[in-house]
């Protein structure tokens, strides 16, 4: 669907009288809210949890880190470990995450306990990246489409995210957040376009396919709705709100255990 929106946007932009300008908007001041970002990768890695407090939308600084929390990671096999504060709202530990286990993350801050849970799934391997030439089409210039091919595990719901780098630069704007489920290709060998971008000849493109559980999908999918589109009057989402967090006590952000596979291709 995202491409449909891009298309609408392109039509609006190019074929009608329109203009964009930066304006001043007065926003209310609200109490800041805790946001917890905790991506746990399969295998042995540094597991880093970042705690920040939201700041005013127009403030010309990044949200501040929140220190002083006690953070514990545990799994359904009974093992448990504390993270070490490294400052600036960041907490770390070397963790060996095993697919199949359910992980619990507990953050205790100023007397409030925040918890979230995530199941680490097996890796789904990316089989192949295919570049395909597309002639210029209307307002969209010529370029290469990239298709990802992989085998979806059969008879189960699967949820994925694509992350990609072009010439070693992570593509990280609104429309680059691509998440999807397998409702329409369960168990098939799939050829899915990396639909948001056209690549140029000679580009080196890295694609990381992340496999995660449903709460993770719900978080990133709702976040994509909120950050992906700025051309419809509602910012692209049916109801503007905050991404669906898997934290309790109204904390923003996510704790997601994920396995991933990465492939690289040079467009030629």
């Amino acid at each position: 669907m995202k491409l449909v929106y891009i298309f609408f946007g392109a039509v609006l932009m190019t074929s009608l009288w329109s203009c964009e300008k930066v304006i001043q908007v007065e926003l209310n001041e609200e109490d800041s809210q805790l946001a917890i970002e905790a991506p746990l990768y399969a295998g042995t890695n540094t597991f880093r949890v970042t705690l920040t407090a939201t700041n005013s939308y127009f403030e010309a600084s990044l949200p501040n880190g929140v220190n002083g929390a006690a953070i514990t990671l545990s799994d359904d096999q009974g093992s448990s470990q504390m993270l070490t504060a490294v400052g600036n709202g960041q907490y770390e530990a070397i963790v060996t995450a095993v697919p199949g286990r359910v992980y619990d993350l507990q953050v205790v801050l100023a007397g409030v306990t925040y918890t979230a849970q995530s199941r680490l799934l097996d890796v789904v391997t990316l089989d192949q990246l295919e570049a395909e030439y597309q002639p210029a089409t209307g307002p969209i210039p010529e370029g290469y489409f990239l298709y990802n091919r992989f085998n979806d595990p059969a008879n189960e719901e699967n949820f994925y995210r694509f992350k990609h780098w072009v010439n070693d630069t992570l593509q990280n704007e609104g429309l680059d957040l691509i998440v999807f489920d397998d409702a329409f290709f369960d168990g098939n060998y799939v050829r899915l376009p990396l639909a948001n971008q056209f690549f140029d000849l000679g580009d080196t493109v890295q694609v990381e396919m992340i496999h995660f559980d449903k709460p993770a999908y719900e978080f990133f999918n709702s976040m994509a709705d909120i950050v992906s589109n700025d051309q419809s009057p509602n910012g692209g989402s049916a109801a503007p709100g905050n991404p669906i967090s898997n934290w309790n006590n109204n904390a923003l952000g996510y704790f997601v255990a994920m396995s991933s596979d990465t492939l690289e291709v040079v467009i030629q």
Binding site: L27, N28, E29, E30, S32, Q33, A35, E37, T52, A53, T54, N55, S56, Y57, E59, L62, P63, N172, L177, M223, P243, L252, G253, Y254
Partner: peptide, 8 residues
């Protein structure tokens, strides 16, 4: 929005 935060 009233505030902002960073994710990824």
């Amino acid at each position: 929005p009233t505030g902002k935060y960073l994710i990824d």
